[in-house]
Design a protein around this nucleic acid. Structure first.
Lengths: 191, 191
DNA sequence: AAAAATAAACTACATATGTATAATATCTTG
DNA sequence: CAAGATATTATACATATGTAGTTTATTTTT
């Protein structure tokens, strides 16, 4: 739905944005966010600096754009589609999928979420919390645990998951995913 | 313990840092982090710009310094000292205290944690998670729930709490603290 | 209280940021 | 395919960032 907007952009614009995003993603793997300048990004992308500013107000906005893309990919890949599932089943499966998703792109996400680039982590957090909140407001979830406030639960679990993911990504010798998930089960009391 | 280092600094240095921190704190209430320049901070603090760079490498480092100070204050104010308490009692009380602490400084924290300044939220997150992890490693907590990994639990609950706090601070019409806390109880299955 | 130590201020400079305007190149539409 | 639309490039400029070297003022030590 959001891709629609992108696809209706001028060919040149889509190309420019793609080049800029890829350039930033590459540079973030090479060195920390603070040490990447707009000049660096433009050189790598072979895009004139004024063109950069025609698309984004600053470096952070490009980073946000990159993270939003990753978040969309993550959500569409990881969220279970089974409409019959209750909260617990749903959350545990989503959690498992998300960890596996991040594990597959460990290098890039590690670069994005750590070393100062997680400046915009609240981008991810807002997107994900919004999504989860919408979900928890559905009747099937409300019925399962009517006493839980969907907004509170959404922010609670989103923050918890992102914190775990960030910590797991930052570790040089990360815990096995199964170990994480078996712990996670104990923290989700909702049935 | 960390204040020791600060206290042994030269009088002039302590004064300069105090002025810079206060200037940033003031400016953050007035406008978003991105729109506050080093020049602005120095003018407000009546400190020469080169002096700024003698103390901090950049704006972010000053922000980190500010947040660390707030975190220290928060921890020393909010963490229960009762050695006999189990995890659940401890976490719920700490949670209540932390929310009340943030509520009292709502304006400043709102400015710090939102509008791009939470760039350094992981500063708070790391500090708090480290603290909580140390705590959960104590025998009394290990005995209460031996199957829980202290590191995983620490990052899980720290992220969850900070996410809730950030969301609560960002809301113009925030939920009553009691409502938050009663929900929170349901999310802490540990006895 | 004087001397030694050192932090702050001053000056200058190289680079980065963000914006405005005009020229050129590319895409889309009819 | 041609004409109009529009994105990119090019150029220039004002401001901000970060650093080096020097002088002045304050603090600590003796």
């Amino acid at each position: 739905m959001d891709d629609q907007k992108e696809n209706h952009l001028d060919l040149r614009q889509r190309k420019t944005r793609k080049l800029l995003v890829e350039a930033l993603a590459q540079l973030l793997v090479e060195r920390p966010y603070q040490e990447v300048s707009v000049v660096d990004i433009c050189q790598r992308a072979m895009v004139h600096r004024t063109t950069f500013y025609a698309h984004f107000n600053d470096k952070q906005e490009l980073l946000r754009y990159l993270l939003e893309g990753l978040e969309r990919e993550c959500a569409s890949t990881c969220l279970p589609q089974e409409p019959g599932w209750g909260p617990r089943e749903y959350l545990l499966t989503a959690g498992r999928n998300v960890f596996q998703f991040f594990a597959q792109r460990r290098e890039l996400y590690r670069a994005c979420l750590n070393s100062g680039a997680d400046a915009q982590a609240h981008t991810l957090e807002e997107c994900a919390a919004g999504e989860l909140c919408r979900l928890l407001t559905e009747p099937r979830f409300r019925e399962a645990s009517p006493q839980v406030d969907p907004q509170v639960a959404a922010h609670f679990y989103t923050g918890a998951m992102l914190s775990l993911i960030r910590w797991w990504l930052s570790s040089d010798d990360p815990l096995p995913i199964d170990h994480l998930l078996s712990n996670l089960e104990q923290f989700i009391p909702i049935q």
